[in-house]
Design a protein around this nucleic acid. Sequence first.
DNA 1: TATTATCCAATTTTT
DNA 2: TTGGATAATA
Length: 779
Amino acid sequence: MQVDILSSLTAAQREAATHIDGPLLMLAGPGSGKTRVVTHRIAYMLKEGIQARNILALTFTNKAAEEMKLRIDRLIPGQNLWMGTFHSFCARLLRQYGNLVGLADNFSILDTKDSKKALQSATDEARIDLSHTSIDTVLWEISNAKSNLRTSQEYERESASKFSGVSEVTRQIYPVYERFLLRSNAVDFDDLLLHVAVMLRDNQQLRHDLDQRYKYIMVDEYQDTNLAQYAIVRALSLSNQNLSVTGDPDQSIYAWRGASISNILEFEKDYPEARVVRLEQNYRSTKRILRAADDLIANNKQRKQKELFTNNGEGEPVKLVCFPHPNDEADAIAARIASEVERGSRSLRDYAVFYRVNAFSRPLEHAMMKQGIPYQVVRGLEFFQRKEVKDLLSYLQLINNPSNDVAFQRVVNLPARGIGKTSLQHIINHAQRYQLTMLEACREAGLIESLSKRAATAINKFVTLIDVLTVSIHMPVSELLVDVVEQTGYGDFVDAQDAKADEDRRGNVDELINAAREFEREMNESTLEAFLEHVALVSDVDDLDIDPDRVTLMTMHAAKGLEFPSVFVVGVEHGIIPHERSLEDAAAEEEERRLLFVGITRAEQQLQLSYCQRRTYRGQTRIASPSQFLYELPRDEMECHIPAGGLSAVSLGGLGSQYELEADFIENLNSDFDVDQTLVNNREDDNPESQIPVPLEDIAAQLQTAAQLVGKKRAAKRDAASFHSGMQVLHNDYGIGLILAITGKGAKRTATVKFANHQERKFRLAFAPLTPVNDSGDD
DNA sequence: TATTATCCAATTTTT
DNA sequence: TTGGATAATA
């Protein structure tokens, strides 16, 4: 039987799969069959007689956990193995032992938005002045602190010497926020981990018990663990060092969220006994794709050297294509997919398009729709973020946990029931004065003098409403939900809105009720509490179905762990990948490179990277230039459809000659250049929505001509001191503009520039990122 | 108090 | 362009 399980593994894989006792580090490159090894290893352990209940397997996504469970079940059916995310594991522990950190077992889990609301409330309550920081910054700072195992006290101590605005404000707010959450019997995502880590640290008995219980621990994507997760894993594997972790430092893309890559890099220090297995053979991609990935990632300095190889064929050349505009980019991709599918060489599910920011899905969606290509957009939390859904869930939260003030505030006047801002403020004051939760304060509405009689009545009605609903707390969630929709008046409210604005909010409501029904059907434990936990810890991504025959659109972050026969990466542009916010920080830039590496290595057979000359983003069209990462690819063996002169004609980051590509654009300065037809002139229709997709080859050909047309028009020198009115200039952020006037002298010399979007701005010539666009040939 | 207008800021986001 | 958060108004 063992032979069955191991026979399909290679030597290296088998070595990892049969290493049961003692620490194990599996460095697994992309496409190296990691999941296969992990699942086979577990199956092997079970066969060897290890109890399923002694195994703890931690993943980052529910999807990954499900996938593994499924595959193990295929190898050894009928084992009841617990597998899940760090967060759900911690939530489960906290339900049991939460009292150790001051949580009742019906605590609520706040999502990021709720956390922000909580933080805002806490800040208001304590009358803390945010001065120059924003609530987002502080939330971020606290989240970071929590990921790094710092409670408010530790933060205070640790940051005592820091005098930046953020840390000063955070020092004040963090303890208040902490108290606010405890009082609300609620945790944010970071708390789930932090509380458990603290609990394990301060409670040796518990630590020991759990250590005994979970004798074999497995962690997937170890490169993405943060300090809190590290501490939890460490605490659970002290007595029994049967810890196996898998990961790939080159695929660490969540450092920005507190993941610390050093966890995996220093595993061998933490566990000197560790066996290290490297899985470097790639079974996924063609040689060419792998070489592109390898060349790219080789530019990272902070890196464990790794040798990727594959026995797969050379494959087609990787494509690099430049387009005038994202609409063309999207059209060309849609057209190619359509034609290949038409030809029968592939099906839609073989294709994925990746981008750096979610907003880039828009032109792609347009193009797919135009072409009638079925597609699915994978977006993190779309469903559970919708207003209707959040509103209704807040009612459920409040019923489940009456202390949840965030939920309370969300629903108290929704639909409007005459409890406005002023009344609410009175309630808040009262609650604060007597240390009550808001719902408790409402129960004393009659005692609050400042409240008008009318308001007091409205509040009493609300309290009664919640009390009545609470009676049904043990009913199936879907029925409770139906009750909520009807009795709170929310259903009518939504219907009224739909009628007025021609929307389908009701549809979302129904969808949520359906989700509840499905939950009842699938889960053996379908209490309200379980449902709320489920929706808090499961995202839409998790039930991403690759099965339906559709093209998949998603961010590169979301793509991790997936693979597709044919992959497009769009918008490989400077300031996009790497993202502009990463430009100053070398470490952040390396992470961006890893991100592109992840994108590239998802591809099995076909890969196309593309960038545009202009990009419409946030309502503004701007000049775009190729990403510096494109220079690091093996372009000589790739198929490049880029303007004459190639990438190198566009100077990196600098503005010097990048608008060489843009000369036609510049010429259109004084005309309305919303739709620039110069490059794509086979369009017959002025309406951008209904334009005919341009075959990729044609666009490439046209680009060449356009570039030739542009010919002599060269960029002026950057240091040109001779700005004058009537002159065309290029601004880093605003694009091309016309100097209307010049005033002042010396350092104060100021230009008034009118930009393409008809905005006028003034710039000090001494510092403004302005470059003259000179048509007098200066070569 | 409730609706409407205006302004502002804007990655990625396993949970 | 979008959404969210305030400010202005009926």
